[in-house]
């Protein structure tokens, strides 16, 4: 039994795990992580050309889609230019929009984010905004025409999991576009929780790429995403404050 495919804009994705490539030790390790999860959406950052090796070929060879991001941008203007460069370089209108407030927290700058999102949607982009776990901001991003919203569970790279599960659940209940838990995942159970709260997908980068065994952690988080989705759609039992016997009470010995 597996999850149903996820449709975002024109793209149908069988895997609900999106993979970030930041921090991966080698292209071979990246290929192993993609293979271990079957992920079909993989992020890249736009940077000045240099001697470094690009992950593009590995992503393409695996049959995955590229999701370029605007990581490192602090203003709407920087993010819009970076998105336009990504579209030109990679031939995709998908953009993971990141506009952060400072290098220390890497938290989204909501004012700049909304400004950039509006400009990019108007310019024809399929915008995937990295946002806080604030419901109102998520709703505004959806209303602007973003194709998904990507609230954080905890700060980027922190591995703290989902610090405010109720906030994530509230966003899932309130917006009509897919919700992708982005940032904060530290291990498999965090990803499962995200899906159980109602998220449509999870993006994991650091938790996988900086694990001791990235491919094994990728497999674990991929399985957790599937498990969480299945559990969410299986209809969990209500929580009770008292016990409920699971064995029949009729025919007890000595009754």
């Amino acid at each position: 039994m597996t999850t149903e495919p996820l449709q975002i804009a024109d793209t149908k994705l069988r895997s609900r795990l999106f993979l970030g490539t930041g921090g991966i030790s080698s292209l071979a390790a990246l290929a192993a992580c993609i293979a271990a999860t079957g992920t079909e959406l993989v992020t890249v950052a736009m940077r000045r050309v240099s001697a470094g090796s690009s992950p593009l070929q590995v992503i393409r060879d695996a049959g995955a889609h590229v999701l370029p991001n605007t990581a490192g941008c602090f203003t709407a203007a920087e993010a819009v230019l970076t998105a336009q460069l990504a579209r030109e370089a990679l031939g995709t209108t998908r953009i993971k929009l990141e506009v952060v407030a400072d290098e220390h927290t890497l938290l989204p700058d909501t004012v700049e984010l909304l400004d950039a999102a509006e400009r990019l949607v108007d310019d024809g982009f399929d915008v995937f905004p990295y946002t806080t776990d604030d419901l109102v901001t998520a709703r505004r991003l959806a209303d602007l025409g973003c194709v998904a919203v990507m609230p954080l569970g905890a700060p980027i790279g922190s591995g703290l999991g989902i610090c405010n599960p109720r906030a994530i659940e509230a966003i899932c209940d309130a917006v009509d576009v897919p919700v992708v838990l982005d940032a904060g995942v530290g291990t498999a159970s965090d990803a499962a929780l995200a899906m159980e709260l109602g998220c449509d997908a999870v993006l994991a980068a650091t938790a996988i790429t900086r694990a001791d065994d990235p491919a094994r952690m990728a497999a674990a988080i991929g399985a957790a995403v599937e498990a969480g989705w299945l559990a969410r759609h299986a209809g969990r039992i209500p929580r009770r404050t008292t016990a409920l016997a699971s064995s029949p009470l009729d025919g007890l010995v000595g009754s």
Binding site: M46, R47, S54, E98
Partner: peptide, 10 residues
Amino acid sequence: VEVVTAMQGG
């Protein structure tokens, strides 16, 4: 002039 490409990230 800026010349950019895709690198690891995100």
